[in-house]
Design a protein around this nucleic acid. Structure first.
Length: 609
RNA sequence: GCCCUUGUAGCUCAGUGGUAGAGCACUCCCUUGGUAAGGGAGAGGUCACGAGUUCAAAUCUCGUCAAGGGCUCCA
């Protein structure tokens, strides 16, 4: 991955709370860390070969947060092995061994590698250009390596490294070649940095949407139903509805119409669209119905195309903007499913724009604006944008590609967003813009995509009647903003760490009766809140207040309302907000006004009224 | 699909060739308690599924399924 600067939207704000955190440099930012990590991987390899003489070395590069080394070993490494290897590494570091760079001839390198019986190294050597360098580690161990390294293992902090995991990896990343054992490690300059790195890993674990999904009762995936199939529980479903309602409104506001299309269609449709040829391995198998075969849909595009083609269209109707929350099913290979992030059944926020060639720029800009409006509502304000241009193998003529690519660029420039260009990275049927969002802990996620398509209009022979009465081919734009509702929901859950903004929380206000005596009053409060569309519940468990508070906080309810004799007398509710702390006692009318306003404006909290 | 690890109560986990365990959650009882866990009792499990070894399998072996960490893939 290149270290190009992050493209930032002009409105980007997202200020973090002022707590000072230890800066953790990435390897590519720090020449010192690069040497440490690179050398650490050599120390790892040496330790492994001391303990496992049959282990053959392959490659051992640094990563942005650490390093790894791939070995060919008859037996996989276990957790216990990792401990032993770590001990051996401590010995090597403690021995203060020098690392030395030696330049050798190709023949010399070949001879030395052959003596050691290291076939992988020989293969690496064959691909190397002069000068060929070895790095020794102490008297007897060396590795073919370009460096750079520290001069002596005494520069490696024995308190600032850890071996993190073992994993399988293919030689040269090719699943047809040997499976190697990869050991991942991390190394830093100081023990404090290592501790911070481990704290962040914990933080990511704390935010894991799979854990939060269970704890907050949002969704589940059931063995009996199958892998990669999502069950939305009431709380998650309520959130999804709120997201969908907002999405629909935003689309109507922006000149879209919504479609509903079937989940299956005659397999001939998929032959026409070409999916049967180039997408077959990602589709669920066909099903026989009467004399025909039907195919579960992996994409919505052909259905929107059929809708367009259902009658003759005039240039006066264009652009046509059609969107659908379309549920699709794709065959994902076993072992690749991951919570909500990678599933077999999911709902795309899919839309297709059919327009005239000269409308491309305006339409793309419109999509960029809508994308920003929708994503920023979920507090995603930092984007990294990629423009992918025509690949070698592609269809369509040069003039159309030029026009389309210029349209994408023009829209990005008008939007004022910086972007990277992936030359030749487009699909065979058209150029595209991909947008990655950055979450609260700095991870990038690709969700939105805007893609021009010269293929489907051709295959389905789409046309509009131009001003001169001739039949012309419309431009087709595919676009998705969330990508998949499931995946976006997972990303958003991790971004908020389960602390959802007030407007989106499935349970917004939980009323906590201090004693049973006030229950009738609490019930009347709940009813009044509900009538105004505020999602209020009552904790009827009968536990003491401390317990009610604890349970409410654990479920990350945005606002807890305490009602005892005092409140019943004064007609108020004592409010405790997760975001803003103690809000004091408010009259019901004030609470309703604030809550309704927060819902309408999609605010993170009740605000100051 | 490949490598490794894991699968025991709703959740988090302990156990180990010889009758299945804890905490939380759940139900009931006592307690009517004011801002992060009041007390007691009870219920709840073909130990993922299938086969094999054994007098005996949750435990050992094999297979299947699923999950986790990676690899690969991701129009």
């Amino acid at each position: 991955m290149t270290s190009a600067p992050m493209a930032v939207s002009p409105q980007a704000a997202a200020t973090e709370s002022g707590t000072a955190v230890l800066h953790l440099p990435k390897t590519s930012d720090s020449p010192a860390l690069l040497r440490i990590r690179h050398s650490m991987s050599h120390v790892l390899a040496m330790a492994v070969q001391r303990l496992f003489p049959k282990a053959q070395v392959t490659i051992g590069p640094w990563t942005e947060n650490g390093f790894y080394y791939d070995f060919d070993n008859p037996e996989p490494f276990t957790e216990a092995d990792l401990k032993a290897i770590r001990k051996e590494m401590l010995k090597i570091i403690g021995s203060r061994l020098p690392l030395e760079r030696i330049e050798v001839s190709r023949e010399e390198a070949e001879r030395r590698i052959s003596e050691q019986n290291e076939p992988y190294k020989l293969e690496i050597l064959a691909g190397l250009q002069e000068p060929i360098t070895l790095y020794t580690l102490g008297e007897s161990w060396w590795d073919l390596c370009a460096g750079p390294h520290v001069a002596n293992t005494s520069e490696l902090n024995p308190k600032a490294f850890a071996l993190e995991s073992v994993a399988g990896a293919y030689w040269r990343g090719d699943e047809k070649r040997a499976q190697l054992q990869r050991i991942y490690g991390t190394a830093w300059e100081t023990a404090e940095q290592l501790a911070e790195h481990q704290r962040r890993k914990q933080e990511a674990l704390r935010r894991d949407h799979r854990r939060l999904g269970t704890d907050l009762e949002l969704f589940s995936i059931e063995d009996e139903a199958g892998a990669g199939l999502v069950f939305w529980h009431p709380r998650g479903a309520r959130m999804r509805l709120l997201i969908e309602d907002f999405w629909r409104q935003a689309h109507f506001d922006d000149g879209y119409e919504l479609l509903y299309t079937p989940h299956v269609a005659d397999i001939e449709l998929w032959r026409t669209s070409g999916h049967l040829d180039f997408y077959a391995e990602s589709m669920f198998g066909p099903m026989q119905v009467d004399e025909r075969q039907f195919q579960l849909k992996p994409m919505n595009c052909p259905f929107h195309v059929l809708t367009y083609a259902s009658r003759l269209r005039s240039y006066r109707e264009l652009p046509i903007r059609w969107a659908e929350l379309g549920t699709v099913y794709r065959y994902e290979r076993p072992g690749v499913m991951h919570g909500l992030m990678r599933v077999r059944g999911f709902t795309q926020d899919d839309a297709h724009v059919f327009c005239l060639p000269e409308q491309i720029g305006d339409e793309i800009l419109r999509v960029l604006n809508l994308t920003e409006r929708i994503l920023s509502t979920f507090d995603f304000r930092q984007y990294e944008i990629n423009l992918s241009t025509r690949p070698q193998k592609s269809i369509g003529d040069d003039a159309v590609w030029d026009l389309a690519t210029r349209g994408l660029i023009e829209a990005l420039e008008r939007k004022g967003w910086s972007y990277k260009v992936d030359e030749g990275g487009g699909a065979f049927y058209g150029p595209k813009i991909d947008l990655k969002i950055e979450d609260a802990i700095g991870r990038l996620w690709q969700c939105s995509t805007i893609q021009l398509d010269f293929n489907l209009p051709e295959r389905f022979n789409l046309a509009y009647v131009a001003a001169d009465g001739s039949r012309q081919r419309p431009i087709m734009i595919h676009r998705a903003i969330f990508g998949s509702l499931e995946r976006f929901f997972g990303i958003m859950t991790e971004n908020y760490a389960g602390d959802f903004p007030f407007w989106l929380a499935p349970e917004q206000i939980r009323l906590l009766p201090v004693t049973d005596e006030v229950l009738p009053y609490v019930e009347s409060l709940q009813q009044q809140l509900q009538q105004q569309g505020v999602r209020a519940t009552i904790d009827r468990s009968g536990d003491r207040l401390g317990k009610l508070i604890r349970n409410g906080e654990q479920m990350k309810i945005p606002v807890l309302g305490v009602i005892g004799a005092k409140e019943a007398e004064t007609g108020a509710i004592s409010l405790r907000s997760r975001r803003d702390g103690d809000l004091g006692a408010l009259p019901l009318a004030t609470l309703i006004n604030r809550a309704v306003a927060a819902n309408q404006q999609r605010l993170p909290g009740l605000g100051d009224g």
